[in-house]
């Protein structure tokens, strides 16, 4: 079960942010923002070695005392970030990977919505609902 999920646009501006405990949102935003550095670094170095068959899932970006931050980048440089509690050992890499895939697919669905302007922050309620659904792991 993740505690926080974020979708970040290709210019690194936030598109969507949610966390289970709204009071901690600001703190999570700081953490997610600083994890972008790692993503960028990984993207830069990743492109050098592997050409285009890039793995979207970046794995753990870094771990903090209480949380672990995982990243996933779409081919259009949309970044997905999930923060999980480090005490939670039940989540394995595969589960996180599938969580990202679900997130990616609902994001793609949302972009298909003609009323959504790409690159705008996502405010759709149903999107929010389904993301919450995914991160709470039901």
């Amino acid at each position: 079960m993740a505690v926080c999920a974020a979708i970040i646009g290709k210019d690194n501006s936030p598109k969507y942010f949610t966390c289970l405990n709204p009071d901690e949102e600001l703190g999570f935003q700081y953490k997610v923002l600083s994890s972008l550095d790692v993503i960028e670094e990984k993207l830069n170095s990743g492109n050098k070695s592997v050409s285009d068959t890039r793995e979207l899932y970046l794995g753990m970006l870094y771990s903090l005392e209480k949380h672990k931050i995982y990243g996933y980048v779409s081919n259009t440089k949309i970044k997905f970030i999930i923060v999980i509690d480090s005490t939670n050992t039940s989540l394995r890499d595969n589960e996180i990977r599938s969580m990202f895939r679900k997130l990616h697919s609902i994001y793609a669905d949302n972009v298909c919505n003609p009323f959504y302007i790409p690159d705008e922050p996502i405010t759709s309620k149903s999107f929010d609902k389904s993301v919450k659904h995914i991160i709470s792991g039901i």
Binding site: D11, S13, P14, E25, L26, Q29, Y30, D119
Partner: peptide
Amino acid sequence: HSPCGWPSLQIQ
């Protein structure tokens, strides 16, 4: 061109 920063953090 587009808001790049994270507004809530910037506000804080």
